[in-house]
Design a binder for these strands. Structure first.
Length: 145
DNA sequence: ATTCTTACA
DNA sequence: TGTAAGAA
């Protein structure tokens, strides 16, 4: 399939599909007219990439991981070099840190919401009255993982 | 009509 | 990441 269809089937902008290729995450074939041609298995490949990206992994690391998850979508222990193990452990720890960070902020926001609901009851529609839209800035909102 | 590359915000 | 321009 060409980039347009892959884009539609993965919900990923073609701009990004080209970017992933540039980063070495994808390696489509080329048609005579120069158009990129992706095998059907690329759909899952892109889902894998998006998943890892959403998990906060940098494309640099994903490139390494993808070499262990060939086409069909199973794991190749043969490529599990000591270096790979080390990078994966490092990423796992970073993820753990982010989980804790997000948990703290989620709880801070939840507490804020609770406080707001306590001193300002909502109306029938479940929203604050128009003349009560003034807000109080949330507490701990530090962000930058 | 679709995709390509390159460049810039 | 998004968008733009010009070519194929």
């Amino acid at each position: 399939m060409r980039i347009g269809e892959l884009s539609k089937r993965t919900g990923t902008p073609s701009r990004l599909l080209r970017y992933y290729e540039e980063q070495g995450l994808l390696a489509p074939q080329r048609c005579a007219n120069g158009y990129r041609f992706y095998p059907a298995t690329t759909v899952d490949r892109v889902r894998q990439i998006r998943g890892l990206l959403d998990a906060g992994l940098p494309t640099r690391i994903i490139k390494q991981i993808l070499r262990c998850l060939r086409e069909p979508m199973d794991i190749y222990f043969a490529d599990a070099t000591p270096e790979m193990i080390a990078t994966l452990e490092r990423e796992r720890d970073r993820m753990t840190d982010r989980v804790e960070f997000l948990t703290r902020n989620r709880d801070a926001i939840a507490a804020y919401l609770e406080a707001v609901r306590r001193y300002r009851p909502t109306n029938a529609e479940g929203h604050p009255a128009a003349d009560e839209q003034r807000t109080v800035p949330p507490r701990d909102a530090s962000d930058s993982p």
